[in-house]
Design a protein around this nucleic acid. Structure first.
Length: 687
DNA sequence: GAGCACTGC
């Protein structure tokens, strides 16, 4: 093994070691050192103060040893807990020491906000204007310049860049941060940077240094993949979090969470805020209501409770409430989804209540259907959650499950790449010039079925030709240029033949952002009634077109969105997406034309990308899918729910009480045959 | 006649 004692700065103990056991309140209580400390500061701090701050970070004491160790290494794994300063400091150290060799240092993040805020902080620390030496690059925003040497970016962005430059020639170092999260992008990047490194070496070019940063302890896996790369450990700045387990398994985790909230509320001094992890919007809204109702009946002596819901679909103005300072003498309770696990950090949290549950997309390989289901978290997730109680001071985490239930949890969440449709990934790898995609060097290889599925879908779309190895077609190359799933990219390319790219770009943009609808549970009927005016008889795609046009017609007015139960944030994103897609179309010399009122042209284009998602009305009034004759129904939220057209196409199937088609358009059988004659001949002969 | 976690290009 390449791990040398000399390189191990400090060993830390994340949650996989046996902790000390104490007892109180009949509950098993445990003591554990956890991630803590905060590295983000406010923007007004001056340069000298910031330099002091930098020197106080745990990573600072190891600076020289770290640089000396990294100098000769082509690849390294850096393990550091939250608060160690690795994300802000390591790129600076490499730059200051000249190890960047005049090329850029890339540091990738799974999330946009992280890339932006870290870059801002580092620019400040260096006393430099953002976009000069230090910059960031995320979708819709490139804040880098000709002098940029340290570039923070989303992992997806580096992957996009790699399509046009597979050897990553502008970079001397690529730091892949937060690798323990195992996003589909970092997992693909692992293989891409490894290949670039080998090829640059072979061609005698400047070597590519790869640094993989992670909070995980599963270091051997990472190290082995990168040719037994050495592992460096950096100490974190952490506070003790007491872990409590329940003595008995809980049958109703929402009820237990409410009980826990009020137990903590009674036992703890005010100003110690509580963070509760639940699974979804509805559950959270109802829990928030219950907490408020119960709080009304509490005695006058107990501190006032401020209860805030938090989930991604919550409008931004309501999201901001969780960051407001808690008035002295009261207590804030935040009820959140796993958005509070990594994406946002809330100050003042002293108590975490962890139900041990999360809503996750579960892929059923037998039906080929996605299903959103409440499942148990992994151990890693549980530790991530408890860490949220120890960011600024020692805290407590109440786990609403027993210790033996904890022991039965899987260690890590399954990497995204093993539970997703891979058609985008395969298309990207082919565009990167990877010849043998089915045998690509993944750190954790997806199943053979899942890879073959993806290739088959791409073949249907005309993006690849199946030979001994799948080969990219010129059309596939064009599709890869779009930041869209292949089916939607295909719809755009098809628009050329129907002179309706303007409308198609709008619909595709609206489809590729989160829901443009906002439906508060209490005003469901109002929302449906008000939005009725946008409904198109041809289906949901044209309804989206109507909404987008109306939104632009009022100059993207926020109040109008609110009045019409639409999500302004997501509509705004759709406008940005459309602009970006339009630029790519212009580069590809696709004429952006409008078809006016001709919705037939639009629906024909949609068929080109979604013909494999067609359903046919049966005599009994039931729909079946054309691909597998599976019984399906129109989702009640669809604008054609009341109608019974002979043929429809849909964007996705979702299994709940029934198997529902979502986002539909009414189509003509002839259009389907025209767009994929051989596919439908095959399907016909099966009948 | 129903209900949708979270990211990202």
């Amino acid at each position: 093994m390449g791990i040398s004692e000399e390189f191990i700065m400090t060993t830390i103990s994340p949650g996989f070691k046996r902790p000390i056991t104490l007892y109180r309140n009949n509950q098993n209580m445990k003591k554990q050192r956890l991630a803590g400390g905060s590295s983000s500061g406010d923007g007004s701090l001056n340069y000298t103060h910031l330099q002091d701050e930098r020197r106080k970070l745990p990573i600072y004491t190891t600076r020289h040893r770290l640089l000396k160790a990294l100098q000769p290494m082509s690849s390294a794994i850096v393990i550091g807990e939250t608060g160690s300063g690795k994300t802000t400091q390591l790129p600076q150290y490499l730059y200051e020491s000249g190890q960047h060799k005049k090329l850029m240092i890339a540091c990738t993040q799974p999330r946009r906000v992280a890339a932006i805020t870290v870059a801002q902080r580092v620019a400040e620390e260096m006393g430099d204007q953002l976009g000069h030496t230090v910059g960031y690059c995320v979708r819709f925003e490139d804040c880098t310049g000709k002098d940029t040497k340290i570039k923070y970016m989303t992992d997806g962005m580096l992957l996009r860049e790699a399509i046009h430059d597979p050897l990553l020639k502008r970079y001397s170092t690529v730091i892949l941060d937060e690798c323990h999260e195992r996003t589909i992008h970092t997992d693909v990047l692992f293989g891409v940077v490894k290949k670039a490194q080998a090829e640059r070496k072979e061609r005698g070019m400047i070597l590519l240094k790869i640094i993989v940063m992670s909070a995980t302890m599963d270091v051997d896996h990472f190290s082995n993949y990168f040719n037994k790369a050495p592992v460096l450990y950096i100490e974190g700045r952490q506070y003790t979090v007491k872990i409590m387990y329940t003595s008995e398994p809980q049958s109703d985790y929402v009820f237990s969470a409410l009980a826990a909230v009020f137990q903590v509320h009674e036992e703890s001094p005010p100003n110690e805020d509580i963070l509760v992890f639940l699974t979804g919007q509805e559950e959270i809204e109802s829990a928030v209501k219950s907490i408020k109702d119960i709080a009304k009946d509490l005695s006058q002596d107990s501190p006032p409770l401020i209860v805030c819901p938090m989930y991604a679909a919550l409008p931004s103005n309501l999201q901001l409430r969780i960051f407001q300072h808690t008035p002295k003498g009261s207590r804030k309770v935040i009820v959140a989804t796993n958005i509070a696990e990594t994406s946002i950090t809330i100050h003042g949290i002293k108590h975490v209540i962890d139900t041990g549950k999360v809503k996750a997309k579960v892929f059923n390989p037998f039906s080929g259907l996605d299903l959103l289901k409440v499942v148990n978290t992994s151990k890693a997730q549980a530790w991530q959650r408890s860490g949220r109680a120890g960011r600024e001071a020692p805290g407590t985490c109440y786990r609403l499950y027993t210790e033996s239930e904890y022991d039965q949890m899987r260690d890590n969440t399954l990497p995204e790449i093993q539970r997703c449709n891979l058609s985008s990934v395969i298309l990207q790898l082919l565009a990167l010039g990877i010849e043998d995609v089915l045998n690509f060097d993944f750190m954790d290889k997806p199943s053979k079925e899942s890879l073959e599925n993806a290739v088959n879908q791409l073949e249907l779309l005309g993006a690849v030709i199946k030979d001994i190895k799948p080969k990219l077609t010129p059309e596939g190359r064009k599709m890869a240029d779009f930041p869209l799933e292949p089916r939607l990219a295909k719809v755009i390319l098809a628009a050329k033949d129907h002179s309706c790219l303007e409308e198609i770009l709008t619909i595709v943009s609206a489809l590729s952002v989160d829901s443009v609808y906002h439906t508060p549970a209490s005003k469901k009927d109002d929302a449906v009634a008000v939005r009725n005016k946008f409904m198109a008889s041809e289906g949901d795609h044209l309804t989206l077109l109507n909404i987008y046009r109306a939104y632009k017609g009022v100059n993207c007015n926020k109040q109008w969105c609110h009045d019409n139960f639409l999500n302004g944030r997501n509509l705004r994103t759709a406008v940005d997406v459309k602009k970006q897609l339009k630029e790519i179309c212009t580069r590809q010399q696709l004429p952006v034309e409008s078809c006016g009122q001709d919705t037939t042209a639009i629906r024909k284009c949609l068929c080109a990308g979604f013909f494999m998602n067609a359903a046919e009305l049966q005599k009994e009034g039931q729909y079946v899918t054309v691909s597998s004759r599976k019984p399906v129904s129109i989702h009640p939220s669809s604008s054609i729910f009341q109608c019974k057209p002979a043929y429809v196409i849909y964007n996705e199937l979702i299994q709940t009480s029934k198997c529902y088609m979502r986002d539909l358009s009414v189509v003509d059988a002839d259009w389907l045959y025209d767009v994929a004659p051989s596919y439908f001949r095959r399907k016909l002969s099966k009948k």
